[in-house]
Amino acid sequence: MPRRIVIGIRGVGHRVIDSVWRLGYASRFFLLTLLKSGTSFRRFGLIIRELYFTGVLSLVIIVVSGLFVGMVLGLQGYETLQRFGAESAVGTMVALSLVRELGPVVAALLFASRAGSAITAEIGLMKATDQLAAMEMMAVDPIARVVAPRFWAGVISMPLLAAMFSIIGVFGGYMVAVVLIGVDEGSFWSQMQDAVDFRYDIVNGIIKTCVFGVAVTAIAVFEGYDAAPTAEGVSGATTRTVVTSALAILGLDFVLTSVMFRGMS
């Protein structure tokens, strides 16, 4: 029996040391990526290529989901607000929920599962098929040539995608509340514009998306680069990207919200 306990404690210690080591390794990798980003900006074509894969190819899912989320917000908002006779505030509700929370968070979650997993799988497969080793043997640094452009493309795409998500969502809410249900169009927009402050709501929302963009792509490139060079290794890394990104997004969202939105109407 005491032997079992010792083995158990040893297991816990092993896990802790392992995860601390991995965290340190990941931070070091992140710093290296930043340090070696010069090439990507000198040859911006590298980033443009990755913008196509992370940004343009994520457009459809972002636009469609944004529309539906906005429409649901319109329905639910109307349903709740009309009990208090405040159905004209539905625009405010839709816009504030999207700009402050749902836009950044849902867009980042979708981005992690669409683009983040693709980045991990691509880098992981390049590793598994010796492409990274071949590059290294050609005296080309894979972090500068493969990792950094993907990282920056993700960081650039994320705020743009989230902005599109929010604006399409507002449009979806407008479709449901104004066009379908018949809330007054003027009060829909004017109440929204009264309540949504540019600096307080919109800028803070954009800051959130930038943070999420850095977190998601940093996780995605690290998991890809760190993947075991086998089919199972790559699929496991892809799953880890989505799970870790989701947890990071929600955790960071809480931290950022508690720092940003306190006081003021």
């Binding site: 691509e122 080793a133 071949a134 050609m138």
Partner: peptide, 26 residues
């Protein structure tokens, strides 16, 4: 390493680049 080169077991061609771009890479 610029004076050496290595041919990997299955070629390790860059799958995202065309044949031309692979050869032009270095």
């Amino acid at each position: 390493r610029r004076k050496m080169s290595m041919l990997f077991q299955f070629g390790a061609l860059f799958t995202d680049l065309s044949v031309f771009d692979n050869v032009a890479f270095q």
